[in-house]
Design a binder for these strands. Structure first.
Lengths: 225, 225
DNA sequence: GTAACGATCAATGTATACATTAACGGCTCT
DNA sequence: AGAGCCGTTAATGTATACATTGATCGTTAC
């Protein structure tokens, strides 16, 4: 594996898993020393991260980890709605039914997974990623795929800010099952509708979580003031 | 200006204006010599082009200019439809009316521009870019903006394959005027509808041009056979 | 004669030295 | 005392030497 790939993988994981907080300056010498590669492959890695939207040029001097926040989620979901619905509709038109039927069945049986602790939840997210991949494959539109990649990366980052609870995950599983069934049926309208419902509920959950965070922040400030 | 910026600008223009055809291998030493920069900034430029979708890694060794074709346009327009409609709807919700009224007026007066030769047509395309920029600004969604940039780049490349004729440009001006008016009115549904109409007609025109190209290819082959 | 293996070579991948630039701090002048 | 300018410094930007890898061509063995 190339040094630039290793640097990219490590930095990407560090950012997504919040070990590098938004606003952190990634100085070339510092990071190349930390990761044990020279500046050249490190710069290559930073280029890729910047293209992906995880870092951004800092006023012409160095790059910083980009900011993600629940405030920005409404904007992100506006675009997700457009792209996910398009993908769902295309997938419904072009799908191979068996694959989506099987995925739907797995979502319908995901209750036990979700209720079985952190390990199970991780597996559930992997199942969601499988559905996304199946939809992408069925839609078979490289432009769409490319546009989705960035959005999903940002979404993964935000998950940490609003931990899904079991109740939400169970509902999410039902919604995903519905999407998979709709695509398996080959019904684009229904696939779009299912996707809209799911994204609406996801966003609502995130915004509710944001309110909780804000409330506790206010309480905290009151305690300290 | 940095050497990597110059290299990027030159290569980007060379690709968009078809001086570098799809499939052309961009060897580092060769291009760095041609552009008068060293390999380091050239690689930086290639990274950016690859992120933008103008070049792609060639089986792990070097990069090649990506292929664009009228065949791929249907896929591109599927995504454009989703994003442009979202942008139009958001812009209609958040716009400042005066700007879009003025743009609409300029489109309604664009007949003389379009009929005044190549120079005028170039100015017309600039006007279209202005509308796009105004919509982006009004939508004020960075995720949307980022997703659109790539699509527009590819579209610009394809324009060369199917030269717009005066009749199509006149129709296009009317459609754009309608979009601008809809946004100025603050009517998201109408803005979406106008956008759908415009994209449909644009794609139809491209596909018709493609048929012409195919037909003439067939004739040519018959003549040579 | 064909296929497979190996060597050579050319291209990319990496490291590092050097150039350049922007930011920060101190000094001076008003 | 405050503001502006200049110098220092530390960062990025660039060039280039070197390492490494993959491809191609030739040779040999079957």
């Amino acid at each position: 594996m190339r040094a630039s790939d290793r640097a990219y993988d490590v930095l990407r994981a560090d950012i997504i898993e919040w070990r590098l907080a938004p606003g952190t300056v990634l100085a070339e010498v510092e990071q190349s020393a930390r990761l044990g590669v020279s500046r050249t492959p490190l710069r290559e890695a930073l280029s890729r991260l910047t293209a992906e939207g995880l870092t951004a040029p800092q006023s012409g001097r160095g790059v910083v980890v980009t900011d993600v926040s629940l405030e920005k989620m409404t904007g992100l979901f506006d675009v997700r709605l457009a792209l996910d619905c398009t993908a769902a509709a295309l997938a419904a038109q072009r799908r191979t039914p068996t694959g989506f039927d099987q995925l739907a069945a797995r979502f319908e049986a995901a209750d036990t997974l979700i209720s079985s602790g952190d390990r199970g939840q991780h597996q559930y997210y992997a199942l969601v990623a499988e559905l996304d991949a199946a939809i992408d494959a069925a839609a078979s539109n490289p432009y769409l795929l490319q546009a989705q990649r960035q959005l999903r990366t940002q979404l993964t980052r935000v998950r940490r800010l609003a931990r899904d609870n079991t109740a939400r995950l169970l509902a999410s599983a039902t919604e995903h099952a519905q999407i998979a069934r709709s695509i398996a049926l080959g019904n684009p309208d229904l696939a779009v509708a299912s996707t809209k419902v799911h994204l609406h509920n996801s966003l609502q959950h995130l915004l509710a979580a944001k309110n909780d965070v804000d409330q506790s922040t206010i309480r905290e400030e009151a305690n300290h003031g």
